[in-house]
Design a protein around this nucleic acid. Structure first.
Lengths: 94, 94
DNA sequence: ATAAGTAGTTTATAAAATAAACCAAATAAT
DNA sequence: ATTATTTGGTTTATTTTATAAACTACTTAT
């Protein structure tokens, strides 16, 4: 009947992050912050959760003298997103 | 970019309840419990939240000698669900 | 030097979901 | 008839999650 919704992706901000990274393949902290409208603190935490789950890779570097955190979706992340999309459809297409 | 996800509907169980009621127009507590696999306690709470929001009507009656709680979606609930479906699409159709 | 801004992280608080315990009545077993 | 057991829930308590606020470290401008 209803498929299970992966709780890691069933979060407005984390879903937005993954959705962004699916189409972009790579995006930095500031860009994600702008696109999602999230606060830095919340974004920092949700990125870390996605990283711990193996859904994204996080690369910390410097852009000039400023630190720059870049995120990239992993193969596991792509699969998880695709599964989530299938699952949510079981709720919205009756 | 990303549309806001109504937090009342962005909950696995509440979304399942509303999704059921969209297609059925009416369902009782036991049936919803079976279809969603929710525990009675959790279901009781989530039904009350949907009722308070005006998304469903809850009618308490007796079926023979047993109490029976029947739920029915409201016009407001239908609109909220339709809006939610539009919003979630902004995350899953890139 | 001092103030203000950038790019984050950490800690604390509020909100949500879930589980466990409970209640009242009905039915089944001894 | 009295003691379980089940049904149909509600209430309370605990855990998890999300959000906001405070903080760190460094940079740029005054």
């Amino acid at each position: 009947m209803f498929k299970e919704l992966n709780p890691l992706l069933h979060s407005e901000l984390r879903l937005a992050i993954i959705s962004l990274l699916i189409s972009l393949e790579e995006a930095d902290f500031i860009y994600i912050k702008q696109q999602t409208g999230a606060t830095a603190g919340n974004l920092s935490i949700q990125i870390e959760k996605l990283r711990t789950a193996g859904y994204i890779d996080v690369i910390k570097s410097f852009k000039g003298k400023m630190p720059c955190t870049t995120c990239k979706i992993t193969a596991q992340g792509i699969t998880a997103f695709e599964d989530y999309v299938e699952a949510i459809k079981s709720y919205i297409n009756k």
